[in-house]
Protein backbone atom coordinates (compact mmCIF):
# COMPACT_ATOMS: atom_id res chain seq x y z
CA UNK A 1 0.00 0.00 0.00
CA UNK A 2 1.42 3.37 -0.99
CA UNK A 3 1.10 5.92 1.83
CA UNK A 4 0.74 9.08 -0.22
CA UNK A 5 -2.10 9.94 -2.58
CA UNK A 6 -2.17 12.75 -5.12
CA UNK A 7 -5.54 13.75 -6.59
CA UNK A 8 -4.86 15.90 -9.63
CA UNK A 9 -7.10 17.72 -12.08
CA UNK A 10 -6.93 16.27 -15.58
CA UNK A 11 -6.74 19.73 -17.15
CA UNK A 12 -3.71 20.97 -15.23
CA UNK A 13 -1.97 18.62 -12.81
CA UNK A 14 -2.09 15.54 -15.03
CA UNK A 15 -0.69 17.51 -17.97
CA UNK A 16 2.07 19.00 -15.82
CA UNK A 17 2.88 15.50 -14.55
CA UNK A 18 2.98 14.12 -18.10
CA UNK A 19 5.31 16.98 -19.05
CA UNK A 20 7.50 16.21 -16.06
CA UNK A 21 7.64 12.50 -16.87
CA UNK A 22 8.81 13.31 -20.40
CA UNK A 23 11.99 14.71 -18.80
CA UNK A 24 12.66 11.31 -17.25
CA UNK A 25 11.07 12.05 -13.87
CA UNK A 26 9.63 9.02 -12.14
CA UNK A 27 6.88 9.41 -9.53
CA UNK A 28 8.25 8.37 -6.10
CA UNK A 29 7.40 4.76 -5.22
CA UNK A 30 5.34 5.77 -2.20
CA UNK A 31 3.06 8.08 -4.21
CA UNK A 32 -0.12 7.02 -5.95
CA UNK A 33 -1.50 9.46 -8.50
CA UNK A 34 -5.19 9.57 -9.40
CA UNK A 35 -6.70 11.83 -12.03
CA UNK A 36 -9.86 13.82 -11.37
CA UNK A 37 -11.84 14.88 -14.45
CA UNK A 38 -12.14 18.27 -12.74
CA UNK A 39 -11.01 19.14 -9.24
CA UNK A 40 -14.57 20.40 -8.70
CA UNK A 41 -15.61 16.73 -8.74
CA UNK A 42 -13.55 16.18 -5.60
CA UNK A 43 -15.77 15.14 -2.74
CA UNK A 44 -14.89 15.28 0.96
CA UNK A 45 -15.63 11.56 0.99
CA UNK A 46 -12.82 10.82 -1.53
CA UNK A 47 -10.36 12.24 0.95
CA UNK A 48 -11.90 10.54 4.00
CA UNK A 49 -12.05 7.20 2.18
CA UNK A 50 -8.36 7.55 1.31
CA UNK A 51 -7.49 7.80 5.00
CA UNK A 52 -9.86 4.93 5.75
CA UNK A 53 -8.01 2.82 3.18
CA UNK A 54 -4.71 3.57 4.88
CA UNK A 55 -3.24 6.53 3.00
CA UNK A 56 -1.35 8.83 5.34
CA UNK A 57 -1.37 12.01 3.31
CA UNK A 58 -3.38 13.46 0.43
CA UNK A 59 -2.33 16.23 -1.95
CA UNK A 60 -5.05 17.87 -4.03
CA UNK A 61 -3.90 19.63 -7.21
CA UNK A 62 -6.38 21.95 -8.83
CA UNK A 63 -6.27 24.54 -11.62
CA UNK A 64 -5.35 28.12 -10.87
CA UNK A 65 -8.14 30.56 -10.07
CA UNK A 66 -9.78 31.82 -13.25
CA UNK A 67 -8.29 28.93 -15.23
CA UNK A 68 -10.92 26.37 -14.23
CA UNK A 69 -12.99 25.26 -17.21
CA UNK A 70 -15.84 24.51 -14.83
CA UNK A 71 -15.45 28.05 -13.47
CA UNK A 72 -16.00 27.08 -9.85
CA UNK A 73 -14.12 23.77 -9.71
CA UNK A 74 -10.95 25.11 -8.09
CA UNK A 75 -12.87 27.04 -5.46
CA UNK A 76 -14.94 23.98 -4.64
CA UNK A 77 -11.84 21.78 -4.41
CA UNK A 78 -10.25 24.27 -2.01
CA UNK A 79 -13.41 24.37 0.12
CA UNK A 80 -13.72 20.60 0.23
CA UNK A 81 -10.06 20.10 1.06
CA UNK A 82 -10.49 22.56 3.93
CA UNK A 83 -13.62 20.73 5.07
CA UNK A 84 -11.77 17.41 4.98
CA UNK A 85 -8.98 18.91 7.12
CA UNK A 86 -11.56 20.07 9.69
CA UNK A 87 -13.30 16.69 9.77
CA UNK A 88 -10.07 14.72 9.99
CA UNK A 89 -8.80 16.88 12.83
CA UNK A 90 -11.98 15.85 14.71
CA UNK A 91 -10.71 12.26 14.69
CA UNK A 92 -7.15 13.16 15.61
CA UNK A 93 -5.58 13.21 12.14
CA UNK A 94 -3.11 16.08 11.65
CA UNK A 95 -4.95 18.50 9.31
CA UNK A 96 -1.67 19.14 7.51
CA UNK A 97 -1.97 15.63 6.12
CA UNK A 98 -4.29 17.14 3.50
CA UNK A 99 -2.61 19.68 1.21
CA UNK A 100 -4.12 21.77 -1.54
CA UNK A 101 -2.19 23.46 -4.33
CA UNK A 102 -3.08 25.17 -7.55
CA UNK A 103 -1.20 24.41 -10.71
CA UNK A 104 -1.20 25.03 -14.47
CA UNK A 105 -0.14 22.55 -17.19
CA UNK A 106 3.13 24.48 -17.61
CA UNK A 107 4.20 24.15 -13.98
CA UNK A 108 6.06 20.83 -14.25
CA UNK A 109 9.09 22.21 -12.42
CA UNK A 110 6.93 23.40 -9.49
CA UNK A 111 5.17 20.03 -9.41
CA UNK A 112 8.54 18.28 -9.12
CA UNK A 113 9.39 20.39 -6.05
CA UNK A 114 5.96 19.90 -4.49
CA UNK A 115 6.11 16.13 -4.91
CA UNK A 116 9.53 16.06 -3.30
CA UNK A 117 8.17 18.08 -0.38
CA UNK A 118 5.05 15.90 -0.20
CA UNK A 119 7.01 12.74 0.60
CA UNK A 120 9.05 14.43 3.34
CA UNK A 121 7.90 13.84 6.93
CA UNK A 122 5.62 16.54 8.28
CA UNK A 123 7.42 18.97 10.58
CA UNK A 124 6.62 18.36 14.24
CA UNK A 125 3.71 20.45 15.47
CA UNK A 126 4.67 23.33 17.70
CA UNK A 127 3.93 22.65 21.36
CA UNK A 128 1.22 24.95 22.66
CA UNK A 129 2.71 27.55 24.94
CA UNK A 130 2.18 26.80 28.60
CA UNK A 131 0.52 29.46 30.69
CA UNK A 132 2.81 30.86 33.37
Amino acid sequence: MKPYLVLGCDRSASRALADLCRTGYVLPDEVEYRTLPCSGSLDVLYILRAFEQGFERVLVLSCNDDACRSLDGSRRAAQRSARARTLLSEVGVNPRCVSFRQISPTMAADLCIWLDEFVQPLPAEAEPEKAE
Binding site: L45, L48, R49, V91
Partner: peptide, 11 residues
Amino acid sequence: VAVTSALLRIA
Protein backbone atom coordinates in the same frame (compact mmCIF):
# COMPACT_ATOMS: atom_id res chain seq x y z
CA VAL B 1 -24.16 9.30 7.04
CA ALA B 2 -21.29 8.34 4.71
CA VAL B 3 -19.00 11.08 6.08
CA THR B 4 -19.81 10.30 9.72
CA SER B 5 -19.37 6.56 9.16
CA ALA B 6 -15.98 7.13 7.51
CA LEU B 7 -14.85 9.30 10.43
CA LEU B 8 -16.06 6.71 12.95
CA ARG B 9 -14.24 3.92 11.11
CA ILE B 10 -11.02 5.96 11.22
CA ALA B 11 -11.46 6.93 14.89
